[in-house]
């Protein structure tokens, strides 16, 4: 019944205007919807992070504004919106103002590829995963630009660190995704989920899939610039790293994009390893939109692990970060791909 809402809207619009106009209007509506999702996701995750941090740090976290402090982040967002946008005099103003949009646009574009459920999946193309990795790697330009254009040495060091870190760990993320693609046999996200109906890929691929999952989690933490890989911001070393000179909403863009990226990384993990929107043993597969619930549960679970990392581990040093990637993760990954290919070839997967 709820499924019909989309077709109803489509027919309503067709009745009002020509087919092209209706198509464009629908695109705009979807984009607006995703902007809403983006904002709500960002705020919810910030709230979740603060509650989880409170839980780990023997304190309460936000608990005054709204039920369990749910509206605290909204209040914070309003504060950020109303703040003055300051910047340094000697900053490269055009690049300085452009930089946050790189980050936020790429995060938004990646979000379109995330399958929230069977029904809610805005952009399902046959090279979905490839598109996702390539789009999300553009985001680093925004951070790099911010570091360069702020004309602040701390920002610059932060920006340089990002460059190094992103280029290195993009490899590991890509490689571990490729490992799973070898097993799944497709790049299209909806298909990857569909073939998991008889078992999640992490079980189907057993040993190599497990290794790929671990590598993905480590590299994913680095990709989303979170502790222990938060050298980019490293507040005890660089103040605030690349966004030292940003204030108000410009800062909030980075802040939100960081959390949305965390969501995207977790979603990819869920799609690749834990069966996306599918319910365990297909118990609720016949109910429409139930996938949303299962997807949400799984993503929050993975996000919780990321938050666990953040509030437990100390930070790496830049050379240790590179050692970990180039001397350990990358060789492991390459061997793992070969292993996975052999497994698939010999039919040793479930």
């Amino acid at each position: 019944m709820i499924l019909n809402i989309f077709t109803d809207i489509h027919e309503l619009l067709l009745g009002l205007m020509s087919e092209e106009a209706a198509h464009i209007l629908e695109l705009v509506l979807i984009a607006a919807g995703y902007l809403g999702i983006f904002a709500i996701l960002g705020l919810l995750l910030v709230w979740l992070e603060r509650r989880v941090a409170g839980f780990f740090q023997l304190r309460l976290g936000p608990n005054r504004v709204g039920p369990m402090g749910l509206f605290q982040t909204i209040a914070d967002a309003l504060k950020l919106v109303s703040k003055e946008l300051t910047g340094t005099v000697k900053a490269d103003m055009q690049l300085y103002k452009l930089a946050p949009y790189f980050v936020i646009t790429t995060a938004l574009m990646s979000l379109a590829l995330i399958p929230f459920s069977y029904e809610i999946h805005a952009f399902d193309i046959n090279i979905g995963l490839f598109f996702l990795t390539s789009v999300s790697s553009i985001g680093v330009i925004g951070i790099f630009l911010a570091g360069w254009a702020s004309n602040n040495k701390y920002s610059l060091i932060g920006g340089m660190r990002t460059g190094i870190q992103m280029i290195s760990y993009e490899l590991s993320v890509g490689m571990s995704i490729v490992t799973m693609v070898v097993l799944a046999g497709t790049l299209q996200i909806s298909e990857i989920v569909e073939i998991q109906k008889d078992g999640w890929l992490i079980f189907k691929g057993h040993i190599p899939a497990l290794i790929a999952f671990m590598v993905f989690m480590i590299a994913g933490t680095a990709e989303s610039n979170r502790t222990p890989f938060d050298l980019v911001e490293a507040e005890s070393e660089l103040g605030a790293g690349f966004h030292t000179e940003y204030s108000g909403m410009n800062f909030a863009y980075y802040f939100l994009a960081e959390f949305v990226n965390l969501f995207i990384i977790s979603s990819v993990a869920v799609v690749l390893f834990f069966g996306g929107w599918l319910s365990p043993f297909g118990i609720t597969d016949s109910i429409p939109f139930a996938g949303l619930f299962w997807f949400g549960i799984k993503v929050v679970g993975v996000i919780f692990i990321f938050m666990w990392f953040r509030w437990t581990f100390p930070r790496f040093r830049i050379d240790q970060l590179l050692t970990l990637e180039w001397k350990y993760l990358l060789p492991i990954n390459i061997v793992n791909i070969v292993l996975m290919a052999l497994m698939v070839w010999l039919g040793l997967t479930f």
């Binding site: 780990f56 740090q57 502790t227 005890s236 509030w311 437990t312 581990f313 100390p314 930070r315």
Partner: peptide, 16 residues
Amino acid sequence: MGMDIGALTTFMYGFR
């Protein structure tokens, strides 16, 4: 010390 190295939780433990 923990906070300088990047582990933020230690600060709260210490204060307890």
